[in-house]
Design a protein around this nucleic acid. Structure first.
Length: 227
DNA sequence: AATAATTTCAACCGCACAGGA
DNA sequence: CTCCTGTGCGGTTGAAATTAT
């Protein structure tokens, strides 16, 4: 493969980026723009492949990236969009300003692992309890995620309740509707709700195609645009 | 306090696709 | 039409950090 040959042939650097490399890359991207990565990699003198530069820029150096903890809103969006689109991380990332596909993929994966472990019963009773407690903490102790006692899911029950929390392919995609979260309605939340219900009506019986989705989702008016 | 287990996340890899020669 | 190059995407890996025992 060309990439492999380049790495081996030119002794390109791999692994974690140094601060110095970051600075250099940032400078060159500002100078040349974030296109033509192979050219940029060569011109910058960085001993990195173009794709390595691209990845570093997109996932770490790019301005306006969020590196902090996920918000309750973001988590719900991810869950919803994953139900709709599956592992289309880049697509999901487009709906979450400041988050990268890589970040979302990592986030989802760490949760999926927990879910899978719980569902296949391949964990010890102790690990199960630990996973449940962790999920409960993570989910309900989110700042602003105020759930009344009667609405709160009972994590101490059987594994069914865990499935309900996360939703499954077999259940109605909208069983995890926003109302169940019993959150105060922020403008963001309201818009999300509208957006998803609108989609659900458009979506019934429709298979996604690249042409279709780009229109239907109207990327010109993204979710976070409150104006 | 030490060690083991688990989680997180940056980075790599292979594949697919688009566009140009 | 075919080949080549660059780019984007999704899956996977592994080191570092964190948490549990």
């Amino acid at each position: 493969m060309a990439y492999q040959a380049a790495v081996e042939g030119q002794k390109l650097r791999k692994g974690p980026w140094l601060e110095e490399e970051d600075e250099r890359l940032t400078m060159y991207v500002k100078l040349k723009g974030d296109q033509r990565w192979e050219t940029l990699a060569k011109e910058s003198g960085l001993m990195r492949s173009g794709r390595s530069c691209r990845l570093r820029w997109l996932n770490y150096l790019r301005p306006n990236l969020k590196h902090g903890h996920i918000t309750a809103d973001e988590e719900k969006i991810i869950v919803k969009l994953h139900e709709l689109w599956g592992n289309k991380w880049s697509k999901i990332a487009q709906m979450l300003p400041g988050r990268t596909d890589n970040w979302i993929k990592n986030y989802w994966r760490s949760h999926l692992v927990k879910k899978a472990q719980i569902q296949d019963g391949a964990v010890s009773a102790r690990n199960l309890q630990s996973a449940l407690n962790k999920a409960q903490q993570d989910f309900f102790l989110q700042e602003g995620n105020k759930i009344t006692a009667d609405k709160k899911y009972n994590f101490d029950q059987d594994h069914e309740s865990v499935e309900n929390l996360w939703g499954t392919k077999e259940t109605n995609s909208y069983d995890l509707g926003l109302s169940e979260f019993a959150l105060p309605s922020s403008p963001y939340e309201t818009r999300l709700s509208d957006w998803i219900s609108e989609l659900s009506s458009e979506q019934s019986g429709i298979t996604w195609t690249p042409d279709h989705d780009s229109d239907a989702w109207g990327c010109s008016s993204p979710l976070w645009d409150m104006n």
